[in-house]
């Protein structure tokens, strides 16, 4: 442990030791066991388990739906953030406080209520069904659930940036004769990009691993509406521990890469805005 900054302060050994102990017991060792379990398969077997057609279909749905959901989040998130920051209207504070509902609401409750809303007899499904749109038990249902759980990420990333944006720049652009549209596109938008991207990545990462809300609203049909985490549970329930571990390692690798990407993004963002 080289170069401590504040040598006077005590407790480095104690706190660091405790941190590493808990981290090892709760996170690292179980993760290591998962890794070992997956590596017990031969390389060919691992590859086979990780890339069965059913697994590929599950990845496709997981990534496709997560991407779609994160895109919905980005578009609506940017709009909502803009409205919440720039306009004053009755109920603004209330809506602002409600944005975090998906963070606080248990995913099972979210899944339950979304499934009941979008089922063909539900408050919303009733209007969509005649149009041939089925929100529940379809790929669309997966997107709906994922968009719900990921919604706060973009709004909460973009809001502070929008808040701190220097309005003078916009005024300058306006006085120089730029139309409002042009000002927003060329002055405001570029400074929002990093925050928007971070929010998008956070929502996407969350969506990849989401389980609770999706199992209620998706049909869990192999090849069609089965997401990767559901397939892991299926593999486990079929006594196929190796298969479950292989899929889990793939998912874990992806989440880990995303996490590193997000950390880089956040560092870039904070440098960008400081």
């Amino acid at each position: 442990m080289a170069g401590r900054k504040f040598n006077v302060l005590p407790g480095f050994g104690l706190t660091m030791g405790f941190t590493l102990l808990v981290l090892s017991l709760v996170v690292l060792i179980p993760m290591g066991v998962l890794w070992v379990r997956a590596m017990e398969l031969s390389w060919g077997e691992f590859w086979h388990q990780a890339t069965t057609p059913r697994a590929l279909a599950a990845y496709r749905l997981t990534f496709g739906a997560s991407l779609a959901a994160a895109t919905v989040n980005a578009v609506f998130g940017a709009m909502v953030a803009w409205v919440l920051v720039r306009y004053d209207f009755a109920g603004r504070r209330f809506l602002d406080a409600l944005i975090d509902v998906p963070f606080a609401l248990p995913t099972a409750v979210a899944g339950l209520t979304l499934a009941s809303l979008f089922s063909d007899q539900g408050w919303l499904g009733r209007w969509l069904a005649p149009l041939g749109v089925h929100g529940a038990y379809s790929g669309l249902g997966v997107v709906i659930a994922l968009a719900f759980v990921g919604q706060p990420f973009v709004i909460r990333s973009v809001q502070p940036v929008l808040q701190n944006l220097d309005r003078e720049l916009e005024e300058v652009a306006a006085t120089l004769g730029a139309g409002r549209c042009r000002t927003v596109c060329q002055v405001v938008a570029p400074s929002l990009w990093p925050a928007l991207l971070t929010g998008f990545a956070l929502a996407f990462a969350r969506a990849i691993g989401e389980y609770g809300s999706v199992v209620f609203i998706s049909g869990n049909l192999p090849y069609r509406t089965e997401i990767a985490p559901v397939l892991i549970v299926m593999r486990l329930d079929e006594y196929n521990y190796g298969g479950a571990a292989a899929l889990a390692v793939v998912l874990l690798g992806i989440s880990f890469s995303l996490l590193i990407l997000i950390n880089l993004l956040e560092r870039w963002t904070s440098r960008y805005y400081s």
Binding site: M1, A2, L23, G209, E210, Y211, V230, A248, I260
Partner: peptide
Amino acid sequence: FEFRGKAVLLTLIDLPFSVSPVVAGL
């Protein structure tokens, strides 16, 4: 305190956020 590997430690602490809950159970 300052020490080497701080960024790695921070990432490791973040890890449970990005792991699918199902994988955690498994």
